[in-house]
């Protein structure tokens, strides 16, 4: 479902004397449907960079990044947008929303974007919020004023609203209490069970051990600093 071949990435800092920083080389990765792969490696090794390249947020310098039938490394913006709408979900660490939009609608938006009816989308959103223990009184408010843990759960609800065939999870269980952590892990297990291919970053080793089938250390894609 997700397949990276020989992906490299560098940043050129034009405003800092044109310095070129090579951050990744020869990255290859394959995730089958129903499989969950954890990315590991120390901070700065490139876990987030790799995730962002799969998401299409960072441009790959070379190689191919197939998600389903789309090569994210070469796709037109609208192809990437279609991919994000239909195929590829992303739960980031930070919630980024339009101010003033109620939580219920923030969560329902991925479904609305797919053209689902408002009733269906909001129904699904409310079920997820309920499950993630977001108090009903908050559903009509914008999540911008919520606590960190609440925002994280809203973000997760949003990421799981649509049954994406491929999912990217960036620290999904960070800053969650035991109860909610359990809910999130259950959501991940259910996604795997329905055949979603998942790539995740988990600092929570116990969680990683429970949901991940394989671990890939990205340090091996990091170009030697001396080189």
């Amino acid at each position: 479902m997700i397949e990276l071949r020989d992906v490299s990435k560098s940043f050129t800092l034009h405003n800092q004397g044109g310095a070129v920083i090579e951050v990744m080389r020869g990255a290859s990765l394959k995730v089958a449907p129903g499989e969950c792969v954890a990315l590991t490696g120390e901070s700065g090794a490139g876990k987030s960079t790799l995730m962002r390249m799969i998401w299409g947020n960072y441009l790959a310098a070379s190689g191919s990044i197939m998600v389903g039938t789309t090569d994210v490394a070469r796709a037109e913006p609208r192809e990437v947008l279609a991919l994000r709408r239909e195929t590829l979900g992303y739960v980031s660490q930070f919630l980024r929303v339009v101010p003033r939009v109620p939580t219920r609608e923030v969560v329902a938006e991925p479904l609305l974007a797919l053209g689902r009816s408002s009733d269906e989308a909001l129904g699904r959103a409310e079920a997820l919020l309920e499950r993630l223990n977001i108090p009903r009184t908050l559903w009509g408010l914008s999540p911008t004023t919520f606590s960190g843990g609440e925002q994280q759960r809203v973000n997760i609800a949003r990421g799981f609203a649509h049954a994406f065939p491929a999912l990217l999870l960036d620290e999904p269980t960070a800053s969650l209490d035991a109860t909610n952590r359990e809910v999130v892990l259950a959501l991940i297990e259910e996604a795997k069970a329905r055949g979603a291919a998942i790539v995740g970053i988990f600092h929570d080793e116990e969680a990683r051990g429970r949901v991940c089938d394989r671990v890939v250390d990205v340090t091996r894609f990091t170009p030697a600093r001396a080189a």
Binding site: T12, H14, N15, N57, Y58, L59, P77
Partner: peptide, 22 residues
């Protein structure tokens, strides 16, 4: 420069875009 909005803003390629974003 052209591209996906978040890609251009988060991984700008052209010197001017980098300056604009920063």
């Amino acid at each position: 420069e052209t591209g996906l909005t978040d890609q251009v803003l988060d991984d700008p390629q052209h010197p001017y875009t980098q300056l604009l974003v920063s």
